[in-house]
Design a protein around this nucleic acid. Structure first.
Lengths: 147, 147
DNA sequence: TGGTTTTTTACGAAATTCGCAAAAATCTTT
DNA sequence: AAAGATTTTTGCGAATTTCGTAAAAAACCA
């Protein structure tokens, strides 16, 4: 957990660095990280800033799907590169997705052409992001580390 | 863009590796990545699997806030470690957040004790995640790379 | 075109990672 | 509690990568 916490802040911290910080050998850190990766506990990735990439429009879209087609719709939507999150939910909407676009034009096109062509979507409830406060994969909590 | 695309798949790929793949020198890759980091275009992070960390319950919660308190509520919620996403939106809900919990008990506690104690929240619309299809920071699209 | 700035390249030095075998620790079973 | 088996940690030298930096190349701009 401490290793995850350190890598959360900087995914490129050297094994030797982490080892020094935690009072362990480089080999230990290396073998643990290798094991965590093999077990699929985490992955090394990058977190781009959408704004800096020209993706100025983000939206969360709640979808109502035709009974029985929820799964296929979800899998279809997961293929789109502009869609970064797809989940099935209890509550008002069967599916909730999150997507990024360069501009409003692109969002409208996505809703009107892509979504409408997707068999099984009955309704789409679009919420436009006005301001982002937090967006992270920081799952590791201090409480979990302390144990 | 090609560098980002490569690092999206493996945030730990060596500069020399990337350089070979793109037919450039190690120094070029290094200076470009250094510049991208300085400009805040992306960060090196890890993507943990919440399930593997025992976070079996995920939820998206739409919030209605008292006029004028939206901002302070959002900033307050951003401090919680269990909250991974906070955004202000147009549409039905003023704020939409995404959070992870070990179990339903923890979610209920969060809603009843944490949220209720947060001055300015008028209503909370909880959607429980039943299945996750996609969750990534893969903002870089092939279209953008090709340019 | 000539000069300026930016980017790329090259390369030795420093640091990191890798491979692996021995030591230590942990777990099992009796 | 001991003996044996398994897992984890450690300690190296070797291979690889990164770093620092100065020169070359390219791009930019009057």
């Amino acid at each position: 957990m401490q290793i995850l916490q350190i890598l959360q802040e900087d995914g490129r911290r050297a094994y030797t660095d982490i080892a020094h910080q935690l009072g362990l050998s480089e080999g230990t850190i290396r073998s643990r990280i290798t094991r965590l990766l093999q077990d699929g506990v985490f992955q090394f990735v990058i977190h781009p800033d959408p704004e800096k990439l020209g993706l100025h429009v983000q939206a969360i879209i709640g979808l109502t799907t035709k009974l029985g087609l929820q799964n296929s719709v979800a899998e279809e939507l997961s293929k789109f590169p502009e869609v970064r999150f797809v989940g099935a939910f209890s509550g008002k909407h069967d599916l909730i997705i999150q997507a990024c676009f360069h501009n409003n034009e692109e969002l409208i096109t996505f809703v009107n052409e892509r979504l409408s062509q997707c068999e099984g979507i009955l309704a789409a409830d679009v919420s436009l992001e006005l301001k982002q406060y937090k967006d992270s994969f920081s799952f590791v909590r201090d409480e979990d580390v302390a144990i």
